[in-house]
């Protein structure tokens, strides 16, 4: 059989995606096959990998102290400016209706004016804003309420995440919540995905936060090199079942942070 051998040109648009692990398995395999025979494309992939390493190192802005002090006030000012303009527009519309009505019928006009006057009480004053409790931002509450989605979103916030990871929680609560979560994840793929993402967002000691996409590939686990105090530079896969086992061996009346929990368990078994 005579097949056309794919050329470098065919792969040009795929190399950066290959380097970033964004291709499907099939695409990856065909790129890899080409790379094994083509030094030029290999070099290009290496360049993309270097570039991506530098891009992730580009520093976030250093914010001056007190940067956020007036932030919320600024938001409110902007809201007020829009609402003010909207109210003016509404009033204008009201006047137009009235003038129009006056022009047509007098008695109707009076009725409309009265109605407009009644309606002109600003809607936002009478508007019933039902009270809704803000989502809890501490781990104990999140676990008590089994608010997995809340936990997921809290974990996505880097400031909250640090405090959640270091918040002492009763071992008893940690144990029951984790057990329920593990049970639920077998039934509900959404919970499983959420759990993976929560775990993936946990920072390693080097400060590498694995992106959600990349971490989803590492199923149900994190590459927590930072926690590998005994065997540095080796990947440790966090095993939730192992953590659960470890928790049964701790005094249920004590407290523990998630950080400590991760330190105590790894692939080699629990080391409490």
């Amino acid at each position: 059989m005579n097949t056309i051998k794919p050329m470098c040109h065919d792969f040009a648009a795929l190399l950066s995606l290959f380097a970033a692990g964004e291709l499907t398995a099939k695409q990856s395999a065909s790129v890899a096959a080409h790379l094994s025979a083509c030094a030029a494309c290999r070099q290009k992939v290496a360049a993309y990998e270097q570039l991506s390493a530098h891009l992730t190192k580009l520093a976030p802005p250093t914010l001056p102290e007190g940067f956020f002090d007036d932030f919320h006030a600024g938001v409110k000012k902007k809201i007020a400016s829009v609402e003010g303009a909207q109210q003016q527009q509404q009033q204008m519309a009201g006047w137009l209706v009235m003038v129009h009505a006056l022009y047509r019928r007098r008695r109707l006009a009076i009725a409309i004016v009265t109605l407009l006057l009644l309606l002109s009480i600003p809607t936002w004053l009478t508007h019933d804003r039902r009270f809704m409790a803000p989502p809890p931002s501490n781990l104990t509450q999140l676990l008590e309420q089994r608010d997995w989605m809340g936990l997921y979103y809290a974990m996505r916030n880097s400031e909250l995440r640090t405090s959640l990871l270091n918040e002492p929680v009763p071992v008893q609560l940690l144990h029951t919540a984790l057990a329920e979560l593990l049970k639920a994840q077998h039934q509900d793929p959404k919970i499983r995905l959420g759990l993976q993402q929560v775990l993936a967002k946990i920072k390693t000691r080097e400060g590498i936060s694995l992106g959600l996409g990349r971490s989803a590939q590492i199923l149900g686990a994190i590459t927590a090199t930072g926690y590998a105090t005994a065997i540095p530079s080796r990947q440790i896969v966090w095993n939730p079942e192992m953590s659960l086992l470890a928790l049964t061996q701790v005094d249920a009346n004590k407290t523990m942070t998630i950080h400590q929990l991760l330190l105590t368990t790894n692939l080699e078994g629990n080391k409490l």
Partner: peptide
């Protein structure tokens, strides 16, 4: 959804840093 004042304050507080960082990277000044 209805967003009461208090929940809105919470939303601002928890997203402000991420949003400023993203905007800064996009427009280049604080």
């Amino acid at each position: 959804m209805e967003i009461p004042e208090q929940a809105f304050t919470q939303i601002v507080a928890s997203h402000q840093r991420a949003l400023v960082q993203l905007a800064y990277r996009l427009v280049g000044n604080l």
